[in-house]
Design a protein around this nucleic acid. Structure first.
Lengths: 242, 242
DNA sequence: CGGTCTATTGACTGGCGTCAAGCACCGTGG
DNA sequence: CCACGGTGCTTGACGCCAGTCAATAGACCG
């Protein structure tokens, strides 16, 4: 079992070389671990936090609730993600963070982050980079929501998860574990659960994916990526000085 | 005519007090001015930049082009916005920035930003904050795209622009100048130009707005905000230490 | 063995897209 | 002074993607 800090380091190392000293500086961060059950709220919209959370295992989602009672997810977070790092600056969070599966989380105090950034400016820029990558993913979601069909949007989402999970070693045999309900998927795609079911089945019929028992297998990444107009550029996967 | 740096300072000062020395440090930034005509591309998707641009006048939009030939905007930028500040870290930009009206722009070299951030850590955090506010606006757009009707989405967009433009003194008599075509609006809302026209007219009929000759007047902010489920929290308008 | 949650399917409805035509405004040039 | 083309706004007719309602079935659980 890889440690949360290891996963974070892998996520960072995909974008820039990490010095040994920086790495151990991360490992020395004081943290407060906490467990959440599926469906629980990890951070509540509108709350003021003096800490941010690093996801160690499980999946979490940024969630906005609407008056109608429906909700919209604006991101899916995977292990190694610094889920609400932006709250370090925003102070008040504009959305809730919800556990989509059982999750284990490490909370890091903002005073510690502040010290880290001052003492290690390069690590500071790397953390800033993480928040800008999150924003780039959000822009991709906007384009998908606005201009792709529901099926193409789902294809894009699956490709995004596949590439991100591969980075942290959670892809095996072209498949990844994703114990998320179709109802949650519908809140990511902004469509109804019934329609979600229909497009999942159409991707199955077209032999692009297998999806059963919380495991998604990509039968044909290229066709799926083409269908969903997925270009990994927005994930910023180039290792270079930042 | 307010200078671009003044506008930036106003945008920052809405979120935290700016020291005199920080202010003059901003004013001393070496910049390269450039003008763009409506429709021109300010920054091209996929390009590598060693500078970022501050919008001085006019409106610009973050734009993603789809295979079908349609496009989706993921943000509207107003004077005083540091439009592609995130490229300071991303290095390669994941979307184009397009002039929605004639624009004047100041380019700032990344080497200068790097120096600024190292010498003035608080200003550095303020710039980071700007990129996280952009991300919060993107999340609001995602929720609107996914879960609001087209009419409510337009209402939300108008409220967002109203509040942001008010911050920089561009609201007068409950109205603001916005010389944008309905076609551009449709690329923000992810709908067709024809449907855009219909919902604009319905907001007019409902006496929520007047919109003529590139000027939008809010006849009833509260009703509009209620209809569009607009809560200004995501704009992070609290002045506090960052 | 009933209760709950999720996946699945069918029937019907409606918001929004597409196509197409008409109109208003504006700058240009004969 | 007016013809003319370009651009953007407006409106109607029609069709489809996706929403809603409802029912069934399977999995899991106490």
């Amino acid at each position: 079992m890889t440690s949360p800090i290891d996963l974070l380091a892998q996520t960072l190392a995909a974008r820039d070389r990490l010095r040994k000293s920086e790495r151990s500086r991360l490992e020395a961060l004081p943290v407060r671990p906490q467990e959440f059950r599926r469906g629980e709220t990890i951070v509540e919209v509108g709350s003021r936090a003096n800490e941010s959370c690093l996801l160690g295992s499980g999946f979490a989602g940024r969630t906005t609730y609407l008056r109608s009672g429906s909700r919209q997810l604006s991101a899916v977070h995977i292990p190694g993600d610094f889920v609400d790092l932006h709250v370090f600056l925003l102070k008040v969070i504009d959305h809730s963070i919800v556990a989509l599966t059982d999750c284990s989380v490490l909370f890091v105090r903002h005073t510690e982050l502040r010290k880290l950034i001052e003492e290690e400016p390069h690590l500071g820029r790397m953390l800033w980079l993480l928040t800008t990558i999150d924003a780039a993913i959000e822009r991709a979601w906007i384009a998908c929501l606005g201009r792709l069909s529901a099926g193409a949007h789902l294809a894009h989402l699956i490709c995004e998860l596949y590439v991100r999970l591969d980075l942290i070693g959670m892809v095996e045999d072209r498949a990844f574990i994703f114990p998320i309900t179709q109802g949650d998927i519908s809140d990511m795609l902004g469509i109804s659960p019934v329609h979600t079911n229909r497009i999942v089945q159409s991707l199955r019929r077209e032999k692009m994916i297998e999806w059963a028992n919380g495991r998604i297998k990509l039968l044909d990444f290229d066709t799926l990526a083409d269908f969903g107009e997925f270009h990994p550029r927005f994930l910023n996967l180039i290792q270079e000085p930042r």
